[in-house]
């Protein structure tokens, strides 16, 4: 048991990298997904095609090949090698942009077509239609999905250990090699991931509940 707590302490030093990577990547994805969503909802066929191609291409190929491509292959083409962390954020950020684009889309699809029509009939321009009418309603559907995606990204970020980011998993692998105490080491790693994911998952549940019932709750005059 003391071993378990020892490893917890050792692996905890990787939490910083796991969190940094996940937050930065998902943050990048949240922003990048906006122009991609705009392209996919555009009236121009060419933009729609580009948006869809981006999403499908990134989703069709697993993260690992993308990671190797950026980290190992680009430098062979004469580009400056990236820091492992930078490469990880870049790859996961762009991949999460693709998934988050789908999540934004689900959010907009959940808003009845009559909402955009009413906004148009009132003479609202595209900016106010999105900012005041569509986005606030789409968020209700998209936010819980985005949180679930965040948890997934937190766990999947483990593969950046293969390019040398010293995250939780990288440290667990190192401890296992050094001490051949795999069971306890990886249990400790699992416990840490659980501690990180569970609060987000619970928050997500609470949030969906709140968003779902918001309209039913009487706010009073």
């Amino acid at each position: 048991m003391t071993d378990f707590f020892h490893y917890l302490t050792v692996l905890s030093s990787g939490v910083r990298y796991t969190l940094e990577l996940t937050f930065a990547a998902v943050g990048l994805g949240l922003v990048l997904a906006i122009p991609v969503t705009a392209a996919r909802r555009s009236s121009s066929r060419a933009y729609r095609f580009l948006g869809t191609a981006f999403v499908e291409l990134l989703r069709a190929i697993p993260p690992l090949p993308w990671l190797f491509l950026v980290f190992f292959a680009l430098p062979t083409m004469g580009l400056t090698p990236l820091q492992p962390m930078t490469a990880g954020i870049l790859v996961f950020g762009i991949i999460s942009a693709a998934y988050l684009t789908e999540i934004y889309r689900a959010g907009f699809r959940a808003v009845p077509a009559g909402q955009a029509e009413a906004a148009a009939a009132l003479g609202l321009g595209p900016f106010h239609t999105y900012a005041r009418i569509l986005v606030p309603q789409a968020v209700k559907t998209a936010l819980p999905l985005a949180l679930a995606y965040f948890i997934g990204a937190l766990k999947d970020s483990a593969i950046v250990s293969v390019i040398g980011v010293q995250d939780i998993s990288a440290r667990a692998v190192a401890q296992n090699v050094a001490n051949s105490n795999g069971l306890i080491v990886f249990l400790a790693a699992a416990a840490i991931y659980l501690c990180l994911s569970l609060p987000v998952a619970l928050f997500g549940r609470w949030l969906s509940y709140r968003l779902g019932t918001q309209n039913a709750v009487r706010v009073g005059a």
Partner: peptide, 30 residues
């Protein structure tokens, strides 16, 4: 659209806004 108002069969009110906000939104932004 400033000259033409429209009322829909299914109302299409903005559910996340109060009655007053529904009525003021376009006055301010359009």
């Amino acid at each position: 659209r400033r000259k033409v108002g429209m009322v829909f069969q299914s109302f299409n009110l903005f559910p996340h806004l109060t009655a007053l906000e529904n009525v003021t939104l376009a006055q301010v932004h359009a």
